[in-house]
Design a protein around this nucleic acid. Structure first.
Length: 557
RNA sequence: UGGGGCGUGGCCAAGUGGUAAGGCAACGGGUUUUGGUCCCGUGAUCCCAGGUUCGAAUCCUGGCGCCCCAGCCA
């Protein structure tokens, strides 16, 4: 069993790294996680983070956190801050190795001049549209730009004037001189620098030209001594360019790029473009909406970081496109939480029960186990009285065959309390059940009958006199379809992804539920206080429900 | 019709010539003061077709299918 943070997984990336170490090709393994600060991190990033930091740790190396901040028109400091918080929360530490591609802007600039000197780059005056037209298509080769023959001095002069701010955005670009006829479009004289008169979150107004991803990434890796630059499959086509640049520039080391398949999960979306659309379009309540697969959202929802790490370890790392069922993620959360979450009782949809033979005005404290999976968690006292609330769905006036819970004349157990028998049903004018009358057996205190009598169900409950009112938010999948449609994915949004219950009742022990601590509401699932929770006005999020075989039986009848 | 990848049970995924691990899901059954947990049991001949071999998911040939690439995004 691949428990949390146990046996390190074995995959093709680790095989390569292990081989490089064994053959002496590298002495220290250095990886990096390189987010662009233009959005929040999601669980797809978690896969990459676990891979990069995991490999570094397993081989005694190090992993850098480096922001790929080469496009100031899309990036913000707020995203940088959020990303740092999320990676930390996930449980990884980059030590003093926090970097930004923008740290290397001056060096990258010098290397661009170096390329010009070698005749391997030129300044192009073509517009973006013209460049596209000259680039050819997937099946037809491109044609050289009319400016590709410019002399070195002219190119150098033009490039320096680009830096000096003499030209408008888009007026000129610096391009590598490689091969306009290459089958690989990335090699058809790719753009290396573009003019962007935009302030940068870190370098301010110092620059008005910025390197492209291709010109920044590999060189940044080389500067940092990264040995294994691990990225996703869509960059496979960029590897020849990555290698070309690193081979033709006076870089201090020779990193290698390896690609793995990005993560996909059913019933959600995992692309930054779509997540941004959901947030900016107001379809969710922000980047940390608990329905989102963002790390911030999952944290708020109550997913433990260790469960996410476990999930990432279980899905593996390969090169084949795959879609992991959300069920696995939910399983990872349940498995961990089952062992760690304290048990409490809470009633989501209260139905009042009056125990008629229980002395009026009396009350008592009953002992309840905090976690049957962890005896060290101890016990607590739960108040009991003549009037209690039970879950409305735990009673049926006319129960079907397989319904084991409370019904007229039937006896069930109240967890850690007594056996009760339903003796009466009170309804309102509309005919719906308002209240139940029951009797209890004083001999069954604690939940066991001395005569060995059995009941078929155990219900959770809360003392009416002591209950604390609360709001509880239930979540379902954000999308109704396993694979939300392409451009039309908003049409697949699940209208019932959020259900707010405003009249819930909690046992008193829940009043000091610690922030960030997920608890189990017995028989219901795992819940965590929401960020909007306040003393005296608690709000809980359901992280995930318990497995519910009754729901299955009920569903298929 | 160019270039780069991928194809093992419903979903992931081991396997690298010697006779198909594991996890999730599903379905049976047992235990149980959570219809939870836990325990036991049930399923593939490996995209297709040829070939090499005593023997192939693993090697060769030819097909088929799916994904990525024509941003001065990353």
């Amino acid at each position: 069993m691949a428990g949390p943070d146990t046996a390190p997984p074995r995959d093709f990336i680790r095989a390569v790294v292990g081989d490089d170490v064994a053959q002496g090709r590298v002495t220290e393994v250095v990886t990096r996680f390189p987010p662009e600060p233009n959005g929040y991190l999601h669980i797809g990033h978690a896969k990459s983070i676990c891979l990069n930091f995991g490999v570094a740790r397993e081989f005694g190396g190090r992993c850098h956190l480096r922001f790929d901040d080469t496009n100031p028109t899309k990036e913000e400091q707020a995203f940088i801050d959020a990303i740092i918080e999320d990676v930390r929360w996930l449980g990884f530490d980059w030590g003093r190795h926090l970097y930004h591609a923008s740290d290397y802007f001056e060096t990258l600039y010098q290397w661009a001049e170096h390329l010009i000197d070698k005749g391997m780059a030129y300044v192009d005056d073509l517009t973006a549209d013209q460049i596209r037209a000259y680039r050819g298509t997937l099946t037809e080769p491109g044609r050289p730009s009319p400016h590709c023959g410019r002399g070195g001095d002219e190119n150098l002069d033009l490039f320096r004037r680009m830096r000096a701010g003499e030209f408008a955005d888009g007026a000129k670009v610096l391009r590598a001189r490689i091969d306009m006829a290459s089958g690989n479009i990335n090699m058809r004289d790719p753009v290396l620098y573009r003019i962007l008169h935009a302030p940068h979150p870190r370098t301010g107004d110092k620059w008005c030209i910025y390197p492209t991803y291709d010109f920044a990434h590999g060189q940044s890796d080389a500067i940092e001594g990264v040995t294994h630059s691990i990225c996703t499959l869509e960059f496979e086509d960029h590897r020849p360019l990555y290698d070309w640049l690193v081979a033709n520039l006076p870089v201090p080391s020779r990193p290698r790029q390896y690609e793995f398949a990005r993560l996909n999960i059913t019933h959600t979306v995992l692309s930054k473009r779509r997540l941004t659309q959901l947030v900016e379009g107001g379809h969710v309540a922000g980047w940390d909406d608990p329905r989102l697969p963002t790390l911030a959202g999952m944290r708020r929802r109550g997913f433990p970081a260790a469960a996410i790490r476990d999930f990432c370890a279980r899905i593996g790392v390969t090169k084949s496109d795959s879609v992991v069922e959300v069920g696995l993620l939910e399983h990872c959360a349940r498995e961990l939480l089952n062992k760690t979450a304290p048990r409490r009782m809470a009633v989501l949809r209260p139905l009042k029960v009056v125990i008629e033979n229980y002395p009026e005005g009396d009350g008592e404290l009953l002992e309840a186990v905090n976690n049957p999976e962890d005896s060290s968690a101890g016990t607590r006292k739960v108040p009991f009285g003549r009037e209690i609330f039970i879950e409305a769905e735990d009673f049926m006036e006319d129960p079907p065959k397989k319904f084991f819970r409370l019904a007229p004349g039937r006896e069930v157990r109240l967890r850690y309390a007594y056996f009760i028998t339903c003796t009466g049903v009170i309804k309102d004018k509309a005919g719906s059940v308002r209240e139940l009358r029951c009797s209890y057996d004083p001999a069954t205190r604690g939940g066991n009958a001395p005569d060995g009598r059995k009941v078929k169900a155990t219900l959770h409950w809360v003392s009416a006199a002591d209950a604390m009112p609360a709001e509880v938010r239930l979540y379902e999948h954000l999308f109704t379809k396993p694979d939300p449609g392409g451009d039309d994915f908003l049409a697949d949004l699940n209208p019932n992804s959020l259900e707010v219950l405003k009249d819930c009742r909690l046992e008193p022990a829940l009043s000091n539920a610690g922030a960030g601590e997920t608890v189990q509401f017995e028989r219901l699932g795992y819940f965590i206080p929401d960020a909007e929770s306040r003393p005296g006005r608690p709000v809980f999020n359901r992280t995930v429900g318990l497995r519910d075989t009754w729901a299955k039986v009920r569903g298929q009848k």
